[in-house]
C-alpha cells in the first residue's frame, strides 16, 4: 500500500484543486469533471474523494458552502481559495519540472552518455 498510495494521494489532491479552479463544484461534479478532462483515463475510487476533500478544506486550500444543484437539490459546493490557488500553482510547477526531468531521463540514449 505504502508508496503508491502516497503518490496517488498527492495526485488526487492536485486533480481536485485543478477541477475546482475552473469553477465551484460539488463532490460528484468534481468526480465527473476529473473524468471528463482526463478523458476517462483516470479512474478515481469514489469513496476516497471525500476524505481528500475534507483534508483539503481542513488545510484551507478549498472552501465549501451549500448551494443548489442543477437538479434543484441542496449540494455542497467547493471552490478554490487564494491559498489553494497558490498551492495549485506550486504543485503544478513541481509536477511539470518532475515530468520534464523524468521525460529527459527516459529519452536518454546510450550515445548521449
Amino acid at each position: 500500500m505504502g508508496k503508491q498510495l502516497d503518490l496517488l494521494q498527492g495526485t488526487l489532491d492536485m486533480l481536485i484543486l485543478k477541477a475546482v479552479s475552473l469553477g465551484p463544484l460539488h463532490g460528484y461534479g468534481i468526480l465527473l469533471r476529473i473524468q471528463q478532462i482526463s478523458k476517462d483515463c483516470l479512474e478515481i475510487q469514489q469513496g476516497s474523494l471525500y476524505p481528500a476533500l475534507y483534508r483539503l478544506e481542513h488545510q484551507g486550500w478549498i472552501a465549501s458552502e451549500w448551494g443548489e444543484s442543477e437538479n434543484r437539490r441542496k449540494a455542497k459546493y467547493y471552490r478554490l481559495t487564494a491559498a489553494g490557488r497558490r498551492r495549485l500553482q506550486t504543485e503544478a510547477e513541481k509536477w511539470n519540472r518532475m515530468a520534464d526531468v523524468m521525460a529527459a531521463i527516459l529519452q536518454t540514449k546510450a550515445e548521449q552518455i
Partner: peptide, 11 residues
C-alpha cells in the same frame, strides 16, 4: 450524510 447521499443519488 447529506453530501454523501447527494453524491450517491446523483450518480
Amino acid at each position: 450524510d447529506a453530501e454523501l447521499r447527494f453524491h450517491i443519488e446523483s450518480f
